[in-house]
Design a protein around this nucleic acid. Structure first.
Lengths: 147, 147
DNA sequence: ATACCTGCAAAGTCTTTGCAATCAA
DNA sequence: TTGATTGCAAAGACTTTGCAGGTAT
């Protein structure tokens, strides 16, 4: 199979073999489109917050076009598998974050830029009791700014 | 002008006159559709988290139909004027919250339910420095749950 | 008088889906 | 082999917009 790596990858995922391992470990079948997209998501030049459309364009530029529908489906699959995290800002677009560890975000309402906050601001805060019969999924903290 | 109040209003906004005052104070022109919608938003039976579609239906039921486009536009106008707050959950819908004071939310990812958390969990947390040249707009904390 | 607002229908944006062909295990 | 996956185009959900007529100040 052709090598779908972006030539510009950082240390995270630098080969198809590595991508296949990540996919396998996450329990999703390693198909060509998924390997392409995973590599593109972890390229050095790729911001960790991507939209479907941007990733689609990236695949075209990389000469490894994956259909837009598949990009959408794959992003959902990756999110369900835990190798991406969905970030909601203002309903006009969904971002997918390659950083799946606990962290928060700055969101610039004017530019649409999203930036990670890696320090855990919520250490030591006391959560209110959850509604009866519900279980915690995640805690999202977003600091909205304007420039 | 006909009285557009929901018969079921709680103490917040119980008359058109009161609605007009709120609108005027917020700096938005008091028009019939806006008075209708403001009253409906502050009805006793109305949850404080509403979508455009739900509010539209409510206006039809109340026999004071406001066009869907106007509902959308009015919700945006109210938000810009500070008498509503936008809450983003999962990109499929936008909620508008009649509670504009500082508070947080539970969001049930399965049911789509949104609930207020009125205690301020963020008292005493230390914010990271904002990106250069930006100013704080708001801090959103959402606790995602599933039942 | 004048700038703003409304309703309607049409258009727009982002995302999902149906289906036949293709692929991984 | 067999169920999962892909691409395409079409459909879908939610929201915004253009415009002619109406309204608040």
């Amino acid at each position: 199979m052709t090598n779908y790596n972006c030539t510009n990858c950082d240390s995270q995922i630098t080969s198809n073999e590595q991508a296949m391992l990540v996919l396998e470990k996450a329990g999703v079948r390693a198909t060509a489109p998924r390997i392409i997209l995973l590599c593109l998501l972890h390229c050095k030049g790729t911001p960790c917050h991507m939209t479907a459309e941007k990733l689609y364009e990236k695949s075209i530029i990389a000469d490894s076009k994956v259909s837009l529908a598949t990009v959408y489906n794959t992003l959902r699959t990756f999110t369900a598998a835990g190798i991406l995290r969905e970030v909601n800002t203002d309903s006009s677009r969904v971002y997918f974050d390659t950083n799946v560890s606990d962290h928060h975000h700055f969101y610039n309402e004017r530019t649409g830029e999203l930036a990670d906050i890696n320090e855990n601001l919520l250490q030591g805060i006391k959560l209110p009791p959850l509604p009866a019969g519900s279980k915690l999924q995640s805690i999202d903290l977003m600091i909205r700014i304007r420039s």
